[in-house]
């Protein structure tokens, strides 16, 4: 028998904590503009203890678009990504200033974190399926969120795996260990696991960096499909990938957002010389 894997206990909040207190504070004109964005960060500073990792980041993320975050290692792009569903809360020394609004609500003011992470899911660099069956991996989230009926769970699992473009490959292996899948399949399983809880936004932190070109192409195709229904924010070190799949691209350097714009502008005619130098590989 393998090692027993225990599900961590999550306490589910009963009420959605969105109140007038944490709604975005904007003028009527700003409010109309804000309606066009899924996530808005305003003057975001983030510190690991005394070390400042992010400086004054203001960024608007459009719904149903792919936004890529690029920049050299240690520039703060993954840190920024993790602020969007409060993954940095898990690091004790982290504190931040500024605001992060999701659907015009400040997620750092009395927002139910469990609900937030259900709405804003995350896929990591290395595929990290749980040591369970393929089925249980995908059913894990819905179960945590209180769904117990077998039929309902089965429907969710099938729908999610199909959306992740994995169904044809695992339909007859649903009750086999997920760790037996290939790297690319495991990563799509992780995406299916995120989709199973019906998120609105998907954060991806270098989701293809550990995959071969074929698996990478599959994930990229999948991202193109998923953006019809989800807002996707992806951190990538692969310039060509960012150029291929993103609608908008933000370039980070030393914790600052240097330039943000349409991907075609960033990759063909960036406004800032530092962006040009980075994407052309003149430093890195």
């Amino acid at each position: 028998m393998g090692t027993t894997f225990t599900l961590p206990k999550f306490k589910q909040c009963e009420e959605n904590k969105t109140t007038s207190e944490n709604k975005i504070n904007m003028t009527e004109e700003d409010d109309t503009a804000a309606m066009n964005f899924k996530i808005i960060t305003k003057n975001l500073d983030l510190f690991y203890g005394d070390f400042q990792a992010l400086y004054d980041i203001s960024m608007d993320i459009r719904p149903n678009k792919v936004t890529a975050l690029i920049g050299p290692s240690g520039c703060g792009k993954s840190t920024f990504l993790r602020t969007l569903n409060r993954m940095n809360d898990l690091i004790a020394s982290v504190h931040l200033n500024g605001n992060v609004y999701y659907d015009q609500t400040d997620i750092y003011k009395n927002y139910d974190v469990i609900e937030l992470r259900k709405r804003i899911g995350m896929v990591f660099q290395k595929p990290n399926p749980f040591p369970m069956t393929v089925f249980d991996n995908v059913a894990y989230g819905p179960r945590v969120h209180g769904i117990k009926k077998k039929n309902q769970l089965h429907d969710i699992v099938e729908k999610s795996i199909k959306k992740a473009a994995l169904w044809d490959e695992v339909a007859d292996r649903l009750h086999e260990p997920a760790l037996g899948l290939s790297g690319g399949q495991q990563q799509r399983l992780c995406i299916a696991r995120v989709l199973a809880v019906e998120p609105d936004v998907i954060l991806m932190d270098e989701p293809t960096s550990a995959l071969d070109p074929i698996s990478t192409a599959r994930i990229e195709d999948l991202i193109e499909e998923l953006k019809q229904n989800y807002t996707i924010i992806i951190v990538t070190h692969n310039m060509q990938q960012a150029g291929r799949i993103s609608d908008f691209t933000g370039f980070f350097l030393n914790g600052k957002l240097i330039e943000m714009g349409k991907a075609k502008d960033i990759f063909f005619n960036p406004a800032d010389k530092r962006t040009e130098d980075y994407i052309c590989g003149r430093f890195g």
Binding site: F268, N269, E276, I279, C280
Partner: peptide, 9 residues
Amino acid sequence: EQPVAGDLR
């Protein structure tokens, strides 16, 4: 080399 930006132009 998959050039971009100024190099591509």
